[in-house]
Design a protein around this nucleic acid. Structure first.
Lengths: 328, 328
DNA sequence: CCGGGTCTTTACATCGTTGGAACAACGATG
DNA sequence: CATCGTTGTTCCAACGATGTAAAGACCCGG
């Protein structure tokens, strides 16, 4: 593999002149520039990123710490983050935590300052003490603890409220919620939006209609739905805190011959591609994932380049109404 | 951030001695070792990976080149590859190609020998000339062109044959296939398995029942299914070359009030988690993704460590029978 | 044709780490 | 007591790139 030295020898100039050409330094004589460029071409020179970064004190990588790639929301987000990072010549390192405290801690620990320039975190269990980071970071979504790290995400209260309002506007009165969680900030906010929507329509908040979910997988949604259908008077609508829970809930409903949406309306959250093609298709709160990815990466880039502190960014969302609430 | 030099000063020994301790070199006096370890602890030393790799000529990264993370199969696979790579102290860099020739070429081009130690490729459009790689690599799945790179994957012909045999055993006679593709090796093999199953049951191969798909997304499956349902005599079963196509096909069937499985049986390929919870749930060929990920990473590790050439690895698969072929 | 500024290039040190040679200390051996 | 092999340690160079400072080339007016 060719190094600057090889190129320099071939072009008959010093190593530094080649480096200057490679880095677009202005003051190089046209004649030398041409010779260097030919030599670069001839040798197929590619800079050694390790060496460059050692010298520059940068690594050229950012970390993306998320629960699990097999969760569609995070997979889609990861794809968008990779694309956004590419525009700043950053490569993305993905760390999976599987939503456990231990997993998140070990992911953070491995983020030595030499490995990545910055990190995008999507934590679920971390506590305030854990946020002693050695690199600039942003948080995706909210988090229960109050830490001085900027956040990128939607207004979860407003989004949840919009979802439940939609159900109320369709005439539903007994609306359940699946996905409450003791330690997840996001869950608390969505629950708050749910309460707010009920309150503004003067509907009662009923404890037994709020089902917690330890994980947000399809199986958890199905289990929660079964317990709701077992109630003496089951709900006529359900708001799930993510699409996977909703898909599981619809599956459980189908298994009990409960018709969606006529007997049970369902709303999800995340707007996974999967939800567009399910039968029935799923009404869902759609955060602008692309905006989230871009904002997170741009913020970090600005922080690393200029050292400026970061403001929080609120990204837009919309409600995608589909067959699970309004029959076609 | 502490460097070896800082630790050495604190422990009162040379830099190299500290390096020896860090790297587990045997011959260090117990007394010095203790002092160095204390100094390491006190300074919170973390090796600068860039510098280490520059010296060692390794990077500590492998690339995973795949079409798109938003495709569940690749998202799941990526998660497993990351986990497997961790066991060899490798970090994984994901590159998305979006299934285009240009995307794949640019991904390969960016894989300078300085960026990664090895690569796992899942190409769809590359031609033989493109495989001039500067690092050891393995291919996931088959590929049309014949290149001297080892492959990891299942026996696609046998797997497809098993899927279609299953449909035949249920009494279906007019079985369609969705997902033929002019340049995809995998598609060709699955089609071959489809033909073989028909042939061994003495069923005719009917051209109009084989629908090509340029992409393997849900929308493509839905479009293909619509064209099948428009036929004068539509099929009574369909074998889709991946689960997304199958999900799209089931969606299209539902929109035309065609009942699955009574009027139309559907089999997919990949066994996505999504397919377990769809309504009806989807019968699918289930490659052992975990085995694929592990085999690919282990093979590369062995190659990088020992320089040995790599043999192909055939991983197991099974057929998961669900409601889309056998009503519950 | 000299002094002074503007371009252009070069030599050298440096980033943090590790491999190798050199050297020092040690007990064992003849 | 000289020699030897084994341990243990240090010094130096090197990986490939870039920043700095200084030297060299060039052009201008006086």
């Amino acid at each position: 593999m060719a190094t600057l030295k090889d190129v320099a020898r071939l072009a008959g100039v010093s190593v530094k002149t080649v480096s200057n050409v490679v880095n677009g330094y202005s003051f190089v004589k046209p004649d030398n520039r041409r010779r260097v460029e030919e030599a670069l071409e001839a040798t197929g020179y590619r800079p050694n990123l390790g060496a460059r970064n050692l010298r520059r004190g940068r690594t050229g990588f950012i970390a993306l710490v998320l629960p699990e790639l097999s969760i569609p929301y995070f997979a889609e987000l990861a794809g968008l983050v990779i694309a956004a990072a590419q525009e700043h010549e950053w490569n993305v390192l993905i760390e999976q935590t599987f939503g456990t405290l231990a997993g998140e801690r070990s992911a953070l620990a491995s983020l030595g300052p030499h490995l990545v320039d910055a990190a995008i975190l999507s934590p679920e269990a971390l506590e305030a003490d854990d946020f002693q980071l050695s690199v600039p970071a942003v948080l995706l979504g909210e988090h229960a603890v109050d830490v001085p790290i900027s956040r990128v995400g939607i207004d979860n209260v407003a989004a949840a409220q919009a979802a439940v309002r939609h159900l109320i506007s369709l005439g539903h009165q007994r609306i359940a919620a699946i996905g409450a969680h003791p330690h997840r900030g996001t869950a608390a906010l969505r629950l708050e939006g749910y309460r707010a929507a009920l309150a503004e329509a003067s509907l009662p908040f009923v404890d037994e209609l709020v089902i917690p979910a330890l994980n947000y997988h399809r199986a958890d949604g199905a289990a929660a739905m079964r317990s709701l259908l077992d109630l003496p008077s089951p709900p006529d609508a359900v708001f799930c805190f993510n699409d996977l829970l909703a898909i599981g809930a619809m599956r459980a409903a189908a298994e009990r011959q409960v018709r969606v949406p006529s007997q049970l309306a369902v709303v999800g959250f995340d707007n996974n591609e999967e939800s567009v093609y399910s039968s029935p298709s799923l009404t869902s709160v759609a955060p602008d994932k692309s905006a989230i990815a871009r904002a997170a990466v741009d913020l970090l880039h600005q922080r690393v380049e200029t050292g400026e502190l970061l403001a929080d960014v609120e990204t837009p969302f919309s409600l995608q109404v589909r067959e699970s609430t309004v029959a076609r």
